[in-house]
Design a protein around this nucleic acid. Sequence first.
RNA 1: GCGCCUGUAGCUCAAUGGAUAGAGCAUCGGACUUCUAAUCCGAGGGUUCCGCGUUCGAGUCGCGGCAGGCGUGCCA
Length: 548
Amino acid sequence: MHPSLDQVQKLLRDELKKAAGPPGENIPIMLERPKEAGHGDIATNLALLLAPRLKKSPREIAQTLVAALSLPEDILEEVEVAGPGFINFTLSRSFLRRGLRELLRCDESFGKLTTGQGKRAQVEFVSANPTGPLTVGHGRQAVLGDAVARILENASYAVEREYYFNDAGKQIRLLGQSIKAQYLRLSGEDASIPEGGYQGDYVEGLARRFMEKRGSLSPPPAEEEFTVFGREEAFAGIKRTLFRLGIHFDRYYSERSLFDSGRIENTIHALRAAGLAYDKDEALWLAGSTLGLDQDWVMVKSTGEPTYRLPDIAYHIHKLEQGYDLIVDVFGADHQATYPVVLAAVSSLGHDASSIEVLIHQFVTVKRGGREVKMSKRKGDFLTLDSLIDEVGTDAVRYFYLLRVRNSHLAFDVDLAVKESEENPVFYVQYAHARTAGILRHAKERGFSEPGMDCDADLLGEGEELALIRQLLVFPEVAAQVLKTLEPQRITVYLREVATAFHQFYQHHRVIGDEPALSRARLSLVKACRTVLSRGLGLLGVSAPDRM
RNA sequence: GCGCCUGUAGCUCAAUGGAUAGAGCAUCGGACUUCUAAUCCGAGGGUUCCGCGUUCGAGUCGCGGCAGGCGUGCCA
């Protein structure tokens, strides 16, 4: 059985720990992948960390460590002390070749992790109120949440995607009132949009559709009918948009259902019973200060209506009761103040909230014509996610969003994104995949059988070939790292590296040539590369086209 | 005022505390009789916002500034 890169690392760790002996107590063995090509495949700074304790020069310590290591011969080609005292390990050709065969054997399951085997995870994201179309801002959330779900699925978690929507509060009522006002206007009556109501063209459109369906009624239908209509229409639109992005939810969780099921009432009772809630000014307050928060928060307004925090708490308790092993909440930066309150309240009621992972992403601003477009849904001045997909295409939209770390602000320059449909980074990677597919197609036409692990990998010895194999074998490590950090953008960085290694290989070496054995070996490498590219793109939810 | 996030090449962004800070776009110069040139090879471009500290070593950690975003609602 060929050891994976992961197992090699474990072996190195054990050996280094042994070699360091007692002075190495409590020093974590750090293994890293050097960014410099000449620094081997794996490096450790152990000698540098030991130096202060041993009061010897790091290089000298490194030499001693290297001498004490006992490692299987066929794994490493070179172990070298370099720079200030790093130990660089270079994998052997035979290891790389065996790794390639292993990759081919695993095929589509290469890089699949078993971390979440038998575990259930829930990812909640988007959760936009059904009051209008999704915006460019929601897009980031949608794509990020879906990529996180895919990453968890790759780690064998049973993943549920959940969308929590508010159909009980003030916003949805305002939508109904706004549509009604537009409806009355269409009927020639004088009506004004309520304070804080929704103004965009789409509200007028909704009113128009309502009228087409129901006609001009006098007296007009009750406000509730407009609300229901508006919500259904908005939701249908949201689902259409998500469908275009390849995103589907397993469950849409209604806030109203929390009231109907009595969960809101139960939460209030629990908070009161725990002495965490008190009445003041005819409102119900959460005693944040006793929970370690810096202030108290209103849970139920003096009008008798709960603020959004109470349903949020009840909702999260319900999540926890379902026994997920992992719960991921994807929130925009505007929720940053809310979730600590929710988590504190949930914990103080005796629930273990440690399975909840909150991912906050920063806002998206939209630039158009060199100017920033201010987005306000209520004023109807926003760029819809749909229009962005129209202009840029699904793959580019997804990839573009995933290129950024979630904690950095994303300025979506629409003009640039459209222009980049020619030069967009996603095409670089997709093109590499299309090239692999093209070569494999060509090989089949020329009568080559399906490439696989029966090839003679020893024939692969060119620099570009070995560099590509190295790159491919890192994939499981990337998958593991991404699982830990839930940062999909690392995949985009990795995929670019793979694509570059492949394009370089392609440029310098002809795959299908005069020597059948060499051709077969290279075809296997191409197939392996195609597998990794398609697996990586799959984690991002971006298509891997066979032709472009 | 206070809290969270961000500040890296002209632009958009990378870089588990490590070695000479990297990519793409843009600019300039080369490479198609080929399995797709949506590619490759090369060049130029940096006080990593500023200052002090921590240590063998700081873009990364701490403190203090500066600038921007978000929050700090009986809005969601």
